[in-house]
Amino acid sequence: MTRTPLIAGNWKMFKMGSEAVNTVRKLAELTIGTNNRDIMIAPPFLAIPLVYQELNNLNNAFKKENKTESRISIGAQNLYHENQGAYTGEVSAPMIKDAGATHVIIGHSERRQYFGETDESICKKIGAAFESDLTPVMCIGETESEKNEEKTFYVLDKQIRNGLKGFRSDELSSLVIAYEPVWAIGTGKTATSDQVEDIHKKIRSLLKEMFGVEFSESLRILYGGSVKPDNIADLMSKQNIDGALVGGASLDAETFAKIVNF
Rank of each mutant, 00 (worst) to 15 (best):
30 L>V: 07
28 A>N: 01
131 E>M: 13
177 I>E: 02
57 N>E: 13
199 I>A: 12
89 G>P: 03
163 G>R: 00
196 V>I: 09
135 T>K: 06
15 K>I: 04
104 V>D: 00
237 S>P: 01
26 K>F: 09
42 A>C: 15
153 F>S: 03
48 I>C: 03
202 K>S: 14
201 K>Y: 14
170 D>R: 14
16 M>W: 04
185 I>C: 08
179 Y>P: 00
13 M>C: 12
92 S>Y: 00
14 F>M: 14
68 T>V: 13
173 S>F: 10
71 R>E: 11
213 V>I: 10
237 S>M: 10
115 F>I: 11
201 K>R: 14
180 E>W: 00
242 D>T: 01
238 K>S: 14
88 T>D: 10
94 P>N: 08
237 S>N: 09
128 A>T: 07
71 R>D: 09
150 E>Q: 15
120 E>G: 01
116 G>D: 12
98 D>V: 00
160 I>T: 02
238 K>N: 05
168 R>G: 13
214 E>M: 05
231 N>H: 08
171 E>G: 02
121 S>V: 10
251 L>N: 11
258 K>I: 09
78 N>P: 01
184 A>K: 06
221 I>K: 03
126 I>D: 05
2 T>W: 14
201 K>G: 10
242 D>G: 05
202 K>F: 09
97 K>V: 04
28 A>G: 00
58 L>I: 15
108 H>C: 07
44 P>V: 12
66 N>W: 09
29 E>I: 05
60 N>G: 09
98 D>Q: 12
32 I>W: 00
194 D>K: 15
32 I>D: 12
67 K>R: 13
100 G>R: 07
75 G>F: 05
178 A>L: 00
187 T>C: 05
262 F>C: 13
80 Y>H: 15
93 A>R: 06
135 T>H: 10
15 K>F: 11
43 P>T: 06
59 N>Q: 03
7 I>C: 08
20 A>K: 00
